[in-house]
């Protein structure tokens, strides 16, 4: 039998070596990982405005995406009362930064609607127009779903939308992400109802009745689709005070 000392020595030596190698690898790659993470999140934000970008997101390099974000995107954080938050106030939320992209929507979602902070992006496109990107988050069938809505400069027509999810069923709920046609259907819909109130967009089971305010649902994914409707309605509620302030 091995003596206890020998076992201890072996285990200690082994874990020390493994820990050293792994931690140096971690620190060596950390720079790249950080950039990758940043670009991944920025890409997700830009995916809502895909049609207005100079070229398709998949073809863009990391540098090009960072460049668009640095030069053409203005980041603002707003509260649910329609005020822009100061950098110090955003910092105080504790997400390690004072820009809109640092907000953790998953944590904000847990707060009551009137206390939430919202990221707001203004994109000065190459065509001379301004577009606005909103971030929304809600619940699907199994887990969280989220998305980005881009608005035209009139602040009520949707210029693009993109959705993602944590664990929806592939082929059913996951279609909100995988089915590009579902996302395209949002283009041109209005987030204001006929009376001029902020309402959101309805994902209707069985097909949209009025393409101005509704989009087609997804067969077999009613709960996820309803989740998208609720998520947009909630998000628009939070953004409404700020949007109406901007419009006037």
């Amino acid at each position: 039998m091995h003596s206890t000392n020998k076992v201890l020595f072996f285990v200690l030596a082994m874990t020390t070596i493994v820990a050293l190698v792994l931690s140096s690898l971690f620190y060596g790659l950390q720079g790249r990982v950080k950039i990758n993470e940043e670009v991944y999140n920025k890409k997700a934000t830009l995916s809502a405005i895909q049609t207005k970008l100079p070229k398709s997101l998949d073809e863009m390099t990391n540098e090009e995406i960072l460049e668009i974000f640095n030069n053409q995107i203005t980041q603002i954080v707003i509260d649910s009362k329609g005020n822009e938050m100061k950098p110090a106030e955003v910092e105080a939320l504790g997400y390690g930064g004072d820009t809109a992209e640092k907000l953790d929507m998953s944590k904000e979602k847990k707060k009551p609607l009137e206390n939430r902070a919202w990221p707001f992006y203004k994109y000065a496109a190459d065509d001379g127009q301004n577009y606005y990107i909103l971030a929304v988050r809600g619940n699907g069938l199994w887990d969280e779903i989220w998305g980005y809505l881009a608005l035209e400069s009139d602040l009520k027509t949707i210029a693009g939308a993109s959705f993602d999810h944590k664990g929806e069923t592939p082929g059913l709920g996951a279609e909100i992400k995988d089915n590009k046609q579902f996302q395209k259907n949002f283009i041109g819909t209005q987030i204001m109802d006929a009376n001029g109130d902020y309402a959101g967009v309805l994902v209707r089971k069985g097909g949209a009745k009025n393409k101005k305010y509704e989009v087609d649902g997804i067969t077999g994914a009613t709960i996820t689709a309803d989740g998208v409707t609720d998520m947009i309605a909630d998000g628009i509620k939070g953004y409404a005070p700020y949007l109406s302030g901007l419009t006037n």
């Binding site: 493994v18 190698v21 792994l22 690898l25 790659l29 790249r32 990982v33 990758n36 670009v39 991944y40």
Partner: peptide, 15 residues
């Protein structure tokens, strides 16, 4: 250890 190496490599080169 090896799985962590794979995970870190993917994170850095194929996020």
């Amino acid at each position: 250890f090896l799985v962590t190496v794979v995970e870190l490599t993917l994170k850095a080169f194929a996020y």
